[in-house]
């Protein structure tokens, strides 16, 4: 079979033989991340009882973004995984923000 000849050209061929574990951190690391996420959620929820005035919305959006990226980067392993996965996901995310942002803009959503 002609294909086997190419096998030697494969620079990372050795990597396939090891049972590679994606360099995923141990449980303790994820538990710490979860505690931080819980803390951020508590902070978010506190805006319901405490009055942050005009800071509330920017604060909440910031916290939301931080939580979002903590989950996709760490829990979903994007940080540790191949970049192609990130590219696939970020194209979708980026397009969604772009088209729906413009759509809401034309409805003058951001004005009020």
């Amino acid at each position: 079979m002609s294909a086997t000849i190419e096998h030697v050209d494969e620079p990372d061929a050795a990597a396939h033989q090891g049972h590679d574990k994606h360099h995923i951190p141990k449980d303790g690391y994820f538990i710490r991340v979860a505690i931080i996420l819980a803390g951020l959620t508590a902070l978010e929820t506190s805006t319901y009882w405490l009055n942050f005035g005009s800071f509330a919305t920017p604060l909440l959006l910031t916290l939301m973004t931080i939580k979002f990226f903590m989950i996709i980067l760490i829990f979903m392993h994007l940080k540790f995984d191949n970049k192609l996965f990130s590219v696939m996901f970020y194209i979708g995310l980026g397009l969604a923000l772009f088209v729906f942002g413009i759509m809401l803009f034309t409805f003058q959503f951001f004005r009020g």
């Binding site: 494969e10 620079p11 990372d12 990597a15 049972h19 590679d20 994606h22 192609l84």
Partner: peptide, 14 residues
Amino acid sequence: DTTAGHGADHGAGH
């Protein structure tokens, strides 16, 4: 060349 560098040693686990 599309696998963004360290392609082959990720994902293709055992």
